[in-house]
């Protein structure tokens, strides 16, 4: 299981477009090169860098296309119409939106409506996930196919689901598992005991 803060940390690697207000050469990082930065020209950077620059008033963040009320309302409709999980615009839609909106929410028009739409979408998907998990356990399935589930969503059923499956597996194979007290044969055991005490006599 991961802490949600760790999932968010992974999401911070996603790229986002910014418009810097400064000039700077290309930066070489372990994860790849970024820049060059030209004032007024859009450039792609990881979210963690965008937030840091924005906090120091060095750039404007261009909100990703999908963070838009109409598009999210459409996604909500698709989600409720489908039995399965629909594909989200980003593998980290919740974390990305939360990071970007909390860094520059004031620059985004209708930010509150975006937040609400996202929360609705999230809740819809979570209740879908809950009932799939329940059905999965009840029917005793051994595998399940869950496409388009994002990392934060998968993490929400950890460690409860894997632990429950462990226990279920243990209960159904119980007669063969480790049991510190099962003796293979008492006659055999008796000889062991006797040897044991004779040895110490």
């Amino acid at each position: 299981m991961m802490d949600p803060a760790e999932v968010e940390f992974i999401a911070e690697k996603q790229m986002v477009e910014i418009v810097p207000n400064f000039n700077f050469d290309r930066v070489y990082l372990i994860s790849g090169e970024i820049g060059p930065f030209r004032a007024g020209l859009p450039v792609k950077v990881p979210i963690w860098m965008a937030i840091n620059l924005r906090q120091r008033q060095k750039c404007r963040i261009l909100v990703p296309d999908w963070m838009d009320v109409e598009k999210l309302e459409q996604a909500k409709e698709d989600e409720s119409a489908s039995r399965y999980f629909t594909k989200m615009p980003s593998e980290h839609y919740m974390a990305e939106a939360q990071l970007i909106l909390s860094a520059c929410g004031e620059d985004v028009p209708r930010a509150d409506e975006i937040r609400t739409a996202l929360k609705d979408l999230w809740d819809m998907r979570m209740s879908k996930l809950r009932s799939s998990v329940d059905t999965f356990i009840k029917t005793g399935g051994t595998h399940a196919r869950l496409d388009h589930l994002t990392l934060m969503e998968m993490n929400s059923v950890r460690p409860l689901l894997p632990h429950a499956l462990d226990q279920l597996h243990r209960l159904s194979t119980v007669r063969f598992v480790f049991s510190p007290l099962v003796n293979s044969s008492s006659c055999f055991d008796m000889h062991i005991s006797i040897l044991y005490y004779c040895f110490w006599c």
Binding site: S186, D189, M190, S193, I194, Y197, C198, W200, C201
Partner: peptide, 21 residues
Amino acid sequence: QNQKDVNVSVSGDANYFAGVQ
């Protein structure tokens, strides 16, 4: 006590096995 009863058992009296066990 088990040592005692095992000594008896070894000399042929099997009645103490259960107690030893």
